[in-house]
Design a protein around this nucleic acid. Structure first.
Lengths: 350, 350
DNA sequence: TTGAAAGCGCTAACAA
DNA sequence: TTGTTAGCGCTTTCAA
């Protein structure tokens, strides 16, 4: 019941064994220049007294904390959790602890987190920007301190910055081509914010695929989404249906928004995919639970997380924070019922 | 481009201003016994030189880190992210940073995280147990150090432990009563592991509601789930359908498993809810995306997170880690199409 | 209102 | 192979 009961320190061990603190320190860190006998002795006593090293002291002295800071916009949906999982796996394997922070899509919280991580002396920072981030001074601040900085998924537009992204352009391009191949000619796009690389590229891929196949790019068919949620998708779809000429396909920049679209289409008695094909982006688990199952694009979240850690490890080794290296992951089309004409009703993907 | 460019410390400020380090320290911490003029001077210089306090040094000296450690089993689905969100909100409001760790349902990782958090001198630990945790020595270790320990959702069975839980028993009880009120007489249960309080209580609530209403509790209608996922729910449902007497309702301890059940029922041509009612637990967002919309129970994740932080703050103040206080949140039934007989086909909940 | 000084627990030269 | 020693950057008595 005793609160405190006094923490055991390296000195206590030294006193108990009649050794010096430095020997204890070396033994605990399994240094080569300590006799096995001594090590065994030290470890045994540490075990017995339930010695708990104080990593603050170690970090203060050594300048390294063995902590990796991670900032994500949120952990809703399946994508960011998957990335975080990948990060944790590889980081802990490399001996790092991970400190996860959510910006909640607010640039102010992002800045606060950056500050907290710097104060905590993290050895590196992995970030996926919030969608309200427009200036990047707080990121530069990290680099100026010589701390490895790696972005994933959402990258700022600054020179020589490192990061891992999915090839959103290619995913969107291929998805649009797929819709065209299914016979769609008037393909609408529910678009995310155009200042973010990911959603900009999704729109761009859609745009270029249309032109490549001789289809017009119609402004009226591109509806900006208020956010990535169901409701926003529903609202955008209502807007689309209220327009003069109905599209024959909808490509949403987000799965959740696509789910909203699906609901609205159903309410209007519009059959998917017979009357209108539908596709989203991210390959959320629910895409296989709805009816019809939703076509989407997988972004390899876990892989992205692992790649980000690898990039960090490289940066750390090179002691040169400005390589500007980028890793681009190939997206994977997940074609499902919602975009399959003809055989649609019976097909089950995978 | 300069790596390092030497960190500014409190001493640099002192030298520059011709003051002592202690005055600087006090000024920075806005202590009462420093003149406003001095404070202004110090703050201005700190700002100008972009001074970044070293929280390691501060923690080492003061023994407080202002960091709260959080261990969750995973961040899939919507529940734990919601809790984490609640925790972050209140914790950051109270001046704490939050360190989130995932145990990935592995007791070994849980132990490793506990150790890392203790080494990092966190001021408190909030935990939701992994489902492989059977002995609780690593938790006792935290309390023995006098560090506030608060559980949420999944609590171990140890005396005097603090925590926040949803009233799973009551949620399951009411849900079962609802199914009975809908005319169901043979209600099956897809059950989670019985060594965890949450799923034990869900089963118990189901059990007691049956008896209360004069219905028999049939072992054959209770199928243990391998895990909480869709696949496990599908397998359990297959098993149920292969049995001699078909149930007229399924109450799954998890929403995801219920989604699996829904798929299997559809494959068998069994209509929901006409031929079989269906309900899950957690109120995952996808429950309103599937057809029919899934009845479920909401657990107020965000509120739970906030309550956990409040409990921590209390513990910290009382300097007494053994109050054994528990907060129980009332669950909320979310009745939807999948369990509504009669008006089912047309009803939309909320 | 300010300063001097001790020390949190550990690491890493350097010496022996 | 082990010991001595000097801090890492900060907080916090105690004294002025």
């Amino acid at each position: 019941m005793a609160k405190g009961s006094k923490r055991i320190s390296i000195q206590d061990l030294a006193a108990e064994l009649g050794l010096s603190v430095s020997t204890i320190s070396r033994a605990l860190n399994n240094a080569v220049d300590v006799s096995d006998a001594t090590k065994a002795q030290v470890w045994a006593l540490a075990e017995k007294l339930n010695y708990q090293p104080n990593s603050m002291a170690a970090s203060l002295r050594s300048g390294r904390s063995n902590v990796l800071g991670v900032i994500v916009p949120h952990i809703n949906g399946a994508f960011f959790p998957a990335v975080v999982h990948g990060i944790e796996r590889l980081a802990s394997q490399a001996g790092f602890n991970v400190m996860i922070c959510q910006s909640s899509e607010e640039v102010d919280r992002e800045k606060k987190h950056i500050n907290a991580l710097l104060k905590a002396q993290v050895d590196g920072v992995l970030v996926s920007m919030s969608n309200t981030t427009r200036d990047f001074a707080h990121f530069e601040q990290v680099r100026r301190k010589g701390i490895p900085l790696v972005f994933f998924d959402r990258m700022p537009d600054i020179p020589n910055v490192c990061g891992v992204v999915a090839d959103d352009y290619r995913g969107a391009y291929q998805l649009t081509e797929h819709l065209i191949a299914q016979g769609c000619r008037r393909i609408a796009h529910l678009a995310g914010p155009q200042h973010l690389n990911i959603t900009f590229n999704r729109h761009q891929g859609y745009h270029d695929a249309l032109l490549k196949h001789g289809l017009p790019y119609e402004k009226a068919l591109v509806i900006p989404l208020a956010n990535s949620r169901e409701k926003a998708g529903a609202a955008a779809t209502e807007q689309l249906l209220a327009g003069p000429a109905r599209p024959d396909a909808i490509f949403s920049a987000y799965d959740f928004a696509a789910a909203g679209a699906l609901r609205v289409l159903e309410e209007h008695g519009i059959r998917v995919p017979q009357d209108m094909a539908l596709a989203g982006f991210s390959n959320e688990p629910f895409t296989t639970m709805v009816k019809p199952q939703l076509t989407s694009v997988d972004q390899h979240g876990e892989l992205m997380g692992e790649a980000a850690v690898q990039l960090f490890l490289q940066l750390q080794k090179r002691s040169d924070t400005f390589t500007g290296q980028r890793i681009v992951l190939k997206p994977k089309l997940m074609i499902r019922e919602s975009s399959l004409h003809g055989q649609a009703a019976t097909t089950k993907s995978q």
